[in-house]
Design a protein around this nucleic acid. Structure first.
Lengths: 201, 201
DNA sequence: ACCTGAACACCGTTCAAGT
DNA sequence: ACCTGAACACCGTTCAAGT
């Protein structure tokens, strides 16, 4: 990669992060190119589709979240590991408005640039869920896809301005519904825990 | 209203119903005008904003759903009334892709054409919820807004193609989480019940 | 009173022409 | 190898001009 290309790529990505953080994943690509002082066609050269751009933006954090599941599996008891991970996943999913819809679409579309990362994420969550189920602390009738959907739904709630104030409360209720009855004592959406994956773009 | 205006209005609304059913609430207004064989400015004359068009499209059913809550309150025991109503609300919310986001935004925006209908809907649900709480069959820490958010989240799940297959199952889990522990025995998303409000546009 | 084509300012996507 | 302006086909919104 030529030096100027490298520079454009990095600057484009940084600008995209800002614009998308402000206007959501459907932000104008023209706007991003403009703010990055780069021809619109240059953006397309580096990121042929919007998904490719999002992939470049999200992959790092997405993969961190996947690895974090493995770590929690070893350091925390099954229920705690599951809840802490859901907490971080929801927190991540909220970092870009509308990201959650793109991610759930990517799950279904093998050709999406985001497919692999999202699919891995689902597997990582599924593993924590299975551990919790084996330990008898999570409902046995829930699949990894269900877990992903619930994380998505919680992210969606957080995206709606009218529900924002209730998001934490609803997190507790809905995340609690995954657990076996009796094992839920006041689940709260936690402040960002140290070492939890976060977007730094 | 002149005869030709009346005819255009009705035809526009019918066409909008079809197009929006196919392409979701963000469907192209130009497309709707085109398919209705009417100038684009005519659509704007009858429906000055997209919200106004949606309001015309949804209000009838929305109000029916509100009235249905009152009926269920009198004919069913509190828990049954609540669950049946949530069932119908989720079913309605899924009738147009993306409607749920518009409705939740309308809740917050007093100037939205949909504000009144959505606000009434929330109150109607809140009443069923309160009855269930008083009877001790629903969690006491849930508000009418929470209920609305949960209905929205379930609608959102149904809107995502990747989760469509799990929507019914997740309905049972999440709706169940509103109930007090012990009172949930296998809640299922029901087929459309006779007399439940539905879109006929 | 109502309808409409056209204009304006946007958008995503593609491509020939430049260095 | 890489960048870019311009073109194309869309979109929402507004308005002067028609009947």
């Amino acid at each position: 990669m030529r030096a100027d290309a490298k520079k454009n790529y990095a600057h484009l990505l940084a600008t995209a992060g800002e614009v998308i953080k402000e206007h959501g994943v459907e932000a104008s690509l023209r706007d991003i190119a403009r703010k990055a002082d780069v021809g619109l066609a240059t953006l397309y050269r580096h990121f042929p589709t919007r998904e490719a751009l999002l992939e470049a933006l999200l992959r790092k954090t997405l993969d961190e979240l996947t690895r974090e599941a493995a770590k929690l599996e070893q350091t925390e008891p099954p229920q705690q590991a599951l809840l802490l991970w859901i907490n971080d996943a929801v927190r991540f999913v909220r970092s870009y408005n509308g990201a959650v819809a793109v991610m759930s679409a990517a799950l279904d579309d093998v050709n999406s640039a985001l497919h692999a990362s999202c699919s891995n994420l689902r597997s990582a969550g599924a593993r924590l869920l299975e551990n919790a189920q084996t330990a008898g602390v999570a409902r046995p009738d829930i699949s990894g896809l269900d877990l992903f959907a619930i994380i998505g739904a919680l992210g969606w709630i957080g995206d709606q301005p009218s529900f924002g104030s209730r998001a934490e409360h609803l997190f507790g209720i809905i995340a609690g519904s995954l657990l076996t009855v009796g094992s839920d004592d006041s689940i709260k959406l936690q402040p960002r825990r140290p070492n939890a994956p976060q977007n730094s773009n």
